[in-house]
Design a protein around this nucleic acid. Structure first.
Lengths: 324, 324
DNA sequence: GTGAAAGCGCTAACAC
DNA sequence: GTGTTAGCGCTTTCAC
């Protein structure tokens, strides 16, 4: 591999000149620039990013921490984040915490080792204490980590109310809510509160069942669906994430429960899996792409100390489907 | 940030000693090790990965190039690759090519700039010429890139035959196959050939319709589904990727076509979207997790010049569903 | 077993 | 405007 000094020798100039010509479009006389460029061409010179990183003390890389990427919500999120970061000139380090011993610590240490310039944290954390002392830039995506770590998220109060309105249009009497683990407090968890408030005001009975921690699989959500139908035979409405509500739909049909006649379903998230089935699920959709773009912009401005005026909270929308 | 020489001073030893103690478990006397460790603790020292990278000329990072991650197949693939690489001690750089000008060149250049030690290429490439001269380690995932770039993939001949067997059990007369773009030749494309061969031998009519290049969206596949039902009213079997067959199922139900009575459906890939709908799709499942693990092992052995004896080709399996 | 010093390849401040 | 050179922080060879 040719190094910068080989280029300098070939071009008959100094190393510093080559570096300046390569990194600053307005440096040097046309003649010099030409000489450098043809030397680069001739030697097939490609600068070493490791050396630049060390010299400039930055990597132009942002880490995205999520539980998993094989889940429609996080798949969309990660895809949108990667795209936004790319257009801002940043590379994406993918960090999945699920099914790994204590990956969260490992990834956080990567940040401290300056492997990446900042992180966007979208994974549930049981041990938020480890974020306290961290000096490097962090943006949380829909997660409470520490008082001084800013959060980008959907307006879940609005989301809960939207879900409530959907059910209220159809005269339901007993709604079961599927929540994530109660072990972690997340902004997303708050839509249940808003939902319950509206439901109580209307005298509708609600029950909450919770998924195990860090559970995003189809097996777990199908098991939960069975539990719901067994424990609450009179349930006539279910609210939960896309995946859990999909499982409920599948099981309802299997058990001969008519949707939406006997059972109304509202999915919270509104990823593509709510749209590609035989019945389109009615859903409260989180503005994932927009949130991702904001999170990307904010982590970048945190990294280079600039200002970003994008809002921190965005409203969800309703996808009218066939299940409520 | 404390540097290694601060630790050395604090511990009263030389920089070299600190480095050796930190990187080699069997170096130094217990007394020295103890001194170094408490200095590290006291100063909260974290080594700079950029400096190590430059010194060791490696990044312990592998790039994964895919068209997108918000598609169930690639979501699973990327998730499994990240996990496998993590357990091999490598970090994952996520590189998505879709909806970006010429991202493929950009990512390939990152490889040459030694931003990553190797790449696993899972994106369609229109310009395979750019891979010719590349010296760095590359493993292709189900893609033909260049004669000297090794490929990990499913045994698609077997896959095509399995799909054929599924239809043959049900006496179909006219099967439409949905293929990816004809512009790129991929191993996956070959399942159609194997499928056609069997079908011809049994005198079953087949037609092929193709998706546009790099099209993985639900809109495109729904449009294609409409075209199929319009152009081929007598179709009684459809074979295609999970997403495209899902769209066909949705549209069939909407048009009052009974599945599986009047129309048999077989999905090729077998990702979770074939399993979470009201009707489970009969599918030929690619062994994504196993292939991912193999690809990860192989790129790592390519990077450090070791040997890997895993097979290059793995057989698919049939997921018996309710649509064929 | 331990310390000094020469890189790794690039950037940019500072002389000329 | 151009060249020289001192870092960036770490690893490791080579004397002691």
């Amino acid at each position: 591999m040719a190094r910068i000094r080989d280029v300098a020798r070939e071009a008959g100039v100094s190393v510093g000149t080559v570096s300046m010509v390569l990194n600053h479009a307005d440096y040097g006389s046309p003649a010099i620039r030409q000489k450098v460029e043809s030397a680069v061409e001739k030697l097939q010179y490609v600068p070493s990013e490791m050396a630049r990183n060390l010299s400039l003390k930055r990597t132009m890389t942002v880490g995205i921490i999520v539980p998993t990427v094989s889940h429609p919500f996080f798949a969309e999120l990660v895809g949108d984040l990667e795209e936004a970061l790319y257009h801002l000139g940043y590379k994406t380090m993918l960090c999945c915490t699920r099914q790994k011993e204590n990956a969260e610590h490992v990834f956080l240490e990567m940040l401290q080792r300056q492997n990446m310039d900042g992180i966007i944290m979208g994974a549930h954390s049981l041990d938020t204490a480890i974020y306290q002392g961290v000096k490097q830039p962090i943006i949380a995506f829909d997660r409470y980590l520490s008082p001084d770590i800013p959060i980008v998220h959907t307006n879940h109060v609005l989301g809960g109310e939207m879900a409530a309105q959907a059910f209220l249009q159809h005269d339901c009497h007993h709604i079961v809510e599927i929540s994530g683990s109660q072990m972690v407090k997340t902004p997303a968890g708050e839509y249940h509160q808003a939902f319950n408030k509206v439901m109580q005001a209307h005298g509708v009975r609600t029950d909450v069942v919770a998924l195990p921690w860090n559970s995003f699989g189809f097996k777990e959500s199908m098991e939960l669906a069975e539990r719901i139908f067994d424990e609450f035979p009179d349930v006539d409405g279910i609210l939960g994430s896309d995946v859990s509500v999909s499982s409920c739909l599948q099981l309802a049909v299997r058990r001969g429960i008519k949707v939406p006649e006997q059972l109304k379903l509202v999915a919270y998230d509104g990823t593509y899996i709510t749209q590609n089935g035989i019945l389109k699920l009615t859903a409260v959709r989180q503005p994932i792409a927009e949130l991702a773009e904001i999170a990307a912009k904010k982590i970048v401005s945190l990294i280079n100390g600039s200002q970003d005026d994008s809002p921190w909270v965005l409203p969800p929308t309703v996808l009218k489907g066939e299940t409520c």
